[in-house]
Amino acid sequence: MRVGPVGYRLGSDWRAPIAAIEALYRDYPKPDFADYTVRLEAEHVWRRWIRPSVRIGGDYRLPEAAPLPLGQGLLAAELGMNLQMALGHRRHLLLHAAVVERDGRAVIMSGISGAGKSTLALLLAQQGWRFLSDEFALIEPDTGLVVPFPRPVSLKNESLSVIPAGSRVGPLLAGTPKGDIRHVAPSVEALAAMDRPAKPVLILFPRFGFPAATRVLPPAESFVRLTQASTNYVALGEAGFRAMVRLRSTVPAIAFDYPDGPSGVAAVEALWAAL
């Protein structure tokens, strides 16, 4: 399937994970060419049938990655797709971030998992924002634009309740290393617009579960935070430095804490409107 500028090919020793992916990615374009290949493999031939466990393989892989039980094959596929980006992708500067857009102006929300960026992105999408990405912000080195990469949103544990009715969802994956997980496909509108980049106007570092507060980040701190949030800054070399300097100097960065989803949405909308 194709997600924004990236084509994937997925192979598996079992049928089930492929079926789950096909269902979740039903509305995505099917390209003739894949940039990256992901393989879900049995650890040994006999482990295809006996206590089957899935090893994540592909063009790029982490040798020490622990295999997952076959029931979590969808998660393995999603992790495999993330790995190809994090380890192999060089065409864009990657930030670990969710991205939403309104009126052609994009907000990049960066943070470690648990900071609530996926939940915020999904809530904002319900308020009329266009969803661009949940996991990676793709910054085009030549233009500084953020390119949509609308993979399904992965929601965990208590965030599962924000899934809007009528969404296309994956199975509930209980007891994964990250707790209970469910994947939510982006809206058909978000997918239809996946080839339309947007200009980043605001970088947010949200933190969920703290009293509401905002703080404009000084240049050095935002530079360091952005390089830490990037999975390929070092690998990109000079192109990475130039893209990062441009992003840092043209887009304001703000750290903001929020106690709950609705106040987070209100804060993002207020910050965006105040620009």
């Binding site: 000084p218 240049p219 050095a220 530079f223 000079e238 300097v245 100097s249």
Partner: peptide, 9 residues
């Protein structure tokens, strides 16, 4: 070299 002055460094 490419130099980008920030605030504290």
């Amino acid at each position: 070299i490419l130099v980008e002055p920030l605030d504290i460094f």
